[in-house]
C-alpha cells in the first residue's frame, strides 16, 4: 500500500435523507394519508467522511439499518446523496453512473447478477458484451476466474439451479470479469456454509494481495472482517463511530470489563451481599446468572479489578475468580445491541 497515493474512494460530509410516508394504521389512516400526506424525514447517512486508498481492504460494519447499504449505494452511484461529496476513481458516481459502473465490481449477497434462466457461461458472455471487453481481455480474465474459482463444471447450468455457494462463486466471477480496481461486497457470506465461506475469503484475499484489488466489505460476520480487512469502519445511526484497525477497537472502547465469581455453594442472598459490598463503587453492576455464580461488570476507568475482588472476596464465599477481558467481538456485539454508546469519532 502506498500511503502517498490519492484516495480511490473519498466521501466528504456524505448525507442521505429519505422521505418516508407516515400512515396511521387501518383504512382511516390510509384515507387520511391520501388527502393530507404526512412524511417523516429519515436520516440514513449523516455527514460520512471516508477516505480509502488504492489496495486497501475496508470492512464497513454496523447494526441493521445503520446506513451500510445506503452508503454502498451512494458509492456505486445508484443513489443520489442529499448533500456532501463522493469521488470514486476520480468520478462522482451518481453523475457518471455508467462510467463509474465500468470501474467497479459489486456483489450483493442477497441478489444475484446472473440471469436466472440462462446458463452461467452465457451470462458471462453477455457481461463481456455489456462491459465491451475486447476478446483478448475477456478470454484472459474469464480463464483466470474459471481457474481460481473452479467454475468449469457450472458453466452449462442455469443460475436458478445453482446452490447458494456455487452462485456466490459465479457472482464473484461476474463482478470481476471486467477487472475493476474496486470491489464492493455487500453481506457476501450470508447463508454460506463454513467451507464455502473459507474458500470465499481465500479468493478475496488472493485478489486483494496479488491483484491489488481495493475491497470494501459490509458484513455481520466477524470472521470476514478479521480475515479480510486491515481496517474497520463502524457506522451507527448513519454516523461513523469508529475508523481504525479491528484490533484497536478494544483499546479504544474496551473499558468495560467483568469479573466472574464462582461461589462455594448456591446462595440466594449472594446478589444482595455483592451489591452491598459494591455500594460505593461507581459503574459496577452485579448480576447472578446462576445460583453459584455472580458476575460484576465495571468500568475500568473508574475502578480496578483488584479493588473489586477485594471487596467481593470478603463479602462472599468464593472458590474461583475469572476476569473477562473485552474482545472486539464483545464490543461490536454490545454496540449492535445498543447498550454501548460510542462517542462520535473525531
Amino acid at each position: 500500500m502506498d500511503t502517498n497515493a490519492a484516495p480511490i474512494i473519498e466521501a466528504k460530509g456524505l448525507t442521505k435523507h429519505f422521505r418516508r410516508p407516515v400512515k396511521e394504521p387501518g383504512l382511516k389512516g390510509a384515507v387520511r394519508h391520501l388527502f393530507r400526506p404526512a412524511y417523516a424525514d429519515v436520516v440514513a447517512v449523516e455527514g460520512v467522511n471516508l477516505s480509502i486508498l488504492p489496495g486497501e481492504s475496508v470492512a464497513y460494519v454496523g447494526p441493521n439499518g445503520a446506513g451500510k447499504s445506503t452508503t454502498v449505494k451512494l458509492l456505486t452511484g445508484i443513489l443520489v446523496p442529499t448533500s456532501g461529496r463522493v469521488t470514486v476513481n476520480g468520478l462522482t458516481p451518481f453523475e457518471n453512473r455508467v462510467e463509474n459502473a465500468r470501474r467497479i465490481g459489486v456483489v450483493f449477497g442477497q441478489r444475484t447478477q446472473l440471469w436466472w434462466d440462462i446458463p452461467v457461461g452465457e451470462s458471462f458472455r453477455l457481461l463481456g458484451d455489456i462491459y465491451e471487453l475486447p476478446d483478448e481481455t475477456y478470454r484472459a480474465s474469464f480463464g483466470e476466474l474459471i481457474d481460481v474459482l473452479d467454475l468449469e463444471p457450472l458453466l452449462r447450468v442455469p443460475a436458478r439451479q445453482l446452490s447458494l455457494g456455487q452462485r456466490m462463486r459465479c457472482d464473484l466471477a461476474a463482478s470481476l470479469l471486467h477487472r475493476p480496481p474496486i470491489l464492493y461486497l455487500d453481506e457476501p457470506t450470508i447463508g454460506l456454509d463454513v467451507s464455502v465461506k473459507a474458500r470465499f475469503r481465500e479468493f478475496i484475499r488472493y485478489m486483494h494481495r496479488e491483484r491489488g484489488l481495493t475491497v470494501m466489505l459490509t458484513s455481520h460476520d466477524l470472521g470476514d472482517i478479521e480475515e479480510l480487512c486491515d481496517r474497520m469502519v463502524m457506522i451507527d445511526n448513519g454516523r461513523i463511530v469508529y475508523d481504525g484497525a479491528l484490533s484497536e477497537v478494544t483499546t479504544r472502547f474496551g473499558w468495560e470489563r467483568a469479573v466472574h465469581l464462582t461461589l462455594t455453594e448456591p446462595d440466594e442472598s449472594a446478589l444482595e451481599a455483592a451489591s452491598r459490598a459494591l455500594g460505593n463503587r461507581p459503574g459496577a453492576v452485579a448480576t447472578q446468572p446462576e445460583p453459584t455464580m455472580v458476575a460484576v461488570t465495571f468500568d475500568s476507568r473508574e475502578t480496578t479489578a483488584g479493588e473489586l475482588i477485594r471487596d467481593l472476596a470478603t463479602a462472599l464465599a468464593v472458590t474461583d475468580i475469572r476476569i473477562e477481558e473485552p474482545t472486539a467481538e464483545s464490543i461490536i456485539r454490545r454496540l449492535y445491541e445498543g447498550d454501548l454508546v460510542f462517542e462520535q469519532a473525531e
Partner: peptide
C-alpha cells in the same frame, strides 16, 4: 429494488 442490479452495470 431489483433495479439495483441493472444500475450497477454500465448501461443506459
Amino acid at each position: 429494488g431489483e433495479i439495483t442490479r441493472e444500475l450497477t452495470r454500465p448501461l443506459n
